[in-house]
């Protein structure tokens, strides 16, 4: 068996560096595109990214997500979106994107003297 391990990038990453594109090359042996799955664990909470899976269309993606990600009562609502529609930052640009924030501790609200009357902050 020919097993390939690919790293998947999303959205705006050029195809030659990304691992996946449903339109130009098959994402797996069946040729089904990759989908991202978001699950709401209970009413009132946000949908959270649960993982990804392969499916031929949106309907199948929702059912696959139901079978793969909610079989232990993990959810009450499912969103799916084809992975290629997700726009993401490029890992190569992480330095300029995220590191400038690391020396700006004053952005955390920890420099105020709280009056004693304010208890739960």
């Amino acid at each position: 068996m020919n097993i390939q391990i690919r790293k998947f990038y999303y959205g705006d990453i050029p195809e030659e560096t990304g691992g996946n594109s449903s339109s130009s090359n098959a994402s797996n042996e069946t040729g089904w595109p990759l989908w991202e799955v978001f699950i709401r664990s209970k009413q009132g909470l946000d949908h959270k990214h649960a993982g990804s899976l392969h499916a031929a269309d949106a309907q199948m993606a929702i059912e696959n997500a139901r079978d793969v990600y909610t079989r232990r009562q993990e959810g009450v609502s499912i969103w799916v979106v084809e992975s290629k529609h997700i726009h993401a930052t490029n890992p190569d640009e992480a330095e300029m994107f995220y590191e400038p924030a690391s020396d700006k501790v004053y952005r955390h609200p920890t420099f105020y003297d709280l009056p004693d009357e304010v208890k739960h902050m």
Partner: peptide, 12 residues
């Protein structure tokens, strides 16, 4: 199963 996701579906 023909694919992991459907393998789980039929097993469910």
């Amino acid at each position: 199963g023909p694919i992991l996701e459907q393998d789980i579906a039929i097993t469910n």
